[in-house]
Computed example of a mutant assay.
Amino acid sequence: MTTKSLIHRTLIFCVLGLFAAMSTAYGDGKPKIGIAMPTVEGDWYSAVLYGAVTEAEKLGYEVVVLDAGGFGHPEKQVDQISNLIVQQVKAILTDPIDPATLDGAVRTAHQAGIPVIGLGTPVISANIQPDAAATSSQCQLGELMADGAKRLLPNGGTIAALAGPPGAYWATERYACFVKSIAGAKIDIVAERNSEEDPATALSIANDLLQRFPKVSLFYAADDTYGVGAGRAIQQAGKCGAVQVLMAGFGKAAEDTMRGGCAQFVVAQRTVLIGRTASELADKLARGETPASRLVEVPFLSITPDHVGEVPLGDIRQPADWKP
């Protein structure tokens, strides 16, 4: 074998080795972005994932979405983030079940050079700041819901609260700011329940609260999963309008509930836009660029029955046939 042919063969092997390494890191020639979420069920998660996934794909990434199966499985989310690190994704988007459990996983991601972005939340772990985040202020959302409660109950009244998943940052922060903001408004919270984010569970709890507090004025619903459950319970009791519903989130079922007269005030996040923005931030960080702002807060919409038909749904809701 001549020296020239030996060099040529060596170069071929080097190129093949480079392609193999790239295939391992990028899969099918595309870089990967990983998304680790508490759940992919429910209108909010479907919408934010639609925004994040479609924007990342438009930017040229393969997207790996991992579902922890609910808020009761923080240890599974830790394992899933570790799995994404092993896959050598270029960035990780996450909404933590319990920030206290993710310090180690986030630290490992950073050691591997992988940025971690808050998807719908500014918090990714208890002690480590996100590299970037696309969110809406949970406290501001709670304050806007309090404004809605005051508008619906100008002379005061009573509230039964479906306060969200136990221990979930977004639900805890949102509700705490709501409670603080209604102080002094002659509005009393007579019941407060935490539960998994499930429509059937929300319906069952709302039914129970209606029986225990038949004269309650208003249901606070942490998001539209709980709000739709409350609206259905009120409808079954024949009390739509007599008992009002205040919720966050504007999925199709929430819109139908409002159009049916069983929900009176919604504070909607531009959820699809949050997802798109998170992927844009992830792309910049993956390319080694510095985003103009590392924390992007997307503004809210307050919706009442009077202008329910004027809502810009493209920023809020995924297409009906899209599934995560």
Rank of each mutant, 00 (worst) to 15 (best):
T2P: 07
T3H: 06
L11M: 12
C14T: 12
V15S: 11
L16F: 03
L16W: 02
G17D: 00
S23F: 13
T24W: 11
A25G: 15
K30D: 09
A36C: 15
A36K: 08
Y45E: 07
Y45R: 07
Y45D: 08
V48K: 08
L49R: 03
Y50C: 06
K58H: 14
L59D: 14
V65F: 09
G70W: 00
F71E: 04
G72S: 14
I92R: 14
D95E: 14
T101N: 12
D103Y: 11
H110M: 02
A112F: 04
V116E: 11
I124H: 03
A126T: 04
N127Q: 07
T135F: 05
Q138E: 10
C139Q: 13
Q140T: 13
L141S: 04
A149E: 04
L152K: 06
P154C: 03
T158A: 06
L162W: 07
A171T: 05
R174N: 08
F178Y: 10
K180R: 13
K180N: 13
A183V: 11
N194M: 02
S195K: 05
D198W: 07
I205M: 14
A206D: 11
R212K: 15
F213Y: 15
V216L: 15
D224G: 05
A237E: 02
V243F: 00
Q244P: 00
M247Q: 13
F250I: 06
A254D: 01
T257L: 03
M258D: 07
R259L: 01
A263D: 04
Q264M: 00
F265V: 03
A268K: 00
R270P: 02
R287C: 03
E289C: 01
T290Q: 10
E297T: 13
F300S: 04
L301E: 13
S302Y: 01
D306N: 12
D315H: 11
R317H: 01
Q318G: 00
